[in-house]
Design a protein around this nucleic acid. Structure first.
Lengths: 141, 141
DNA sequence: GTCTCCATGTTGTATATGCAACATATAAGT
DNA sequence: ACTTATATGTTGCATATACAACATGGAGAC
């Protein structure tokens, strides 16, 4: 079984992706720490800024996040005053949230640059490819 | 800022990788659920089977996991009787753990196949590329 | 031998994450 | 109108994850 286990250890796509995710998340989180942000919440803020206020479930679909995960992330961010609920129950970024994410841009850029240099241009393309495939996984054949 | 935020939302490597990671982790976890396993612990078991008993920190290095994360995962797995500590304080898979991971192989294969069909051969190669780059990130230039 | 440094492991604290179960609400069909 | 189905949001529970702080233990330096 040792050799078979070795093959599985090397081939498991989830295992590999989780390793990559841990490393990359760490690079961004450590960089954003000085702003009091983590990459998950930064992503949500950027999303709200880019696409405007939306429902929690719409956010979940965009970010491929369970609705309960969205709900609790929004809770934390609401406590911080970064987002709030509109009349229509949409999640909306506040002025504080907007200023925070704008101020975090240099740190984001630095982390992005670090990861780019680790991945190389092929690696960056690889990420785009994977994201596309995942997002369109139900729209084929 | 809207357009800039849009660019950032689309380009952020951490955001993209975390999306992929969430989707892929979910596919494996749902498949392994019938065995009472999740992909993180399955990865640890496979690692122990492939490389033999090792220290927690060695496991952390292989899986790019913080030592505290390893420690608590091993705790849970010890309670389940899947691993134990040797005299030399190494983590070792038990017979129960071995049988469990062997029995989980069909579910793993199914999840792997599902993700392969989403990624396509280019996607699978992309994952390998990213893993290599991440693991060798300090060994260049 | 002693002291210092580094590797290792654990614990406190906090975020991130998902499933199941529940409550609501909205839409559609009859 | 009533019913049913679907979408949405929250909460209980459990795992996964990392940083900071701490304790320990071994390896050299002297």
């Amino acid at each position: 079984m040792d050799e078979i286990a070795l093959e599985i250890a090397k081939q498991c796509l989830a295992g590999q992706i989780k390793i990559v995710s841990r490393v990359v998340t760490g690079i961004y989180d450590r960089e954003l720490k000085s702003c009091g942000l983590k990459i998950t919440q930064a992503s949500i803020l950027v999303h709200l800024l880019a696409y405007g206020s939306r429902s929690g479930s719409a956010l979940g679909r965009s970010l491929q996040m369970d609705k309960s995960t969205v709900s609790r992330n929004i809770d934390r961010m609401t406590k911080n005053g970064w987002v709030h609920k509109t009349d229509a129950d949409n999640v909306e970024i506040t002025e504080v949230g907007r200023e925070l994410i704008v101020s975090a841009r240099p740190q984001w850029e630095k982390a992005q640059k670090t990861v780019c240099s680790i991945f190389g241009s092929e690696g960056v393309e690889a990420v785009t490819l994977l994201t596309d495939r995942v997002k369109n996984r139900n729209k084929r054949k």
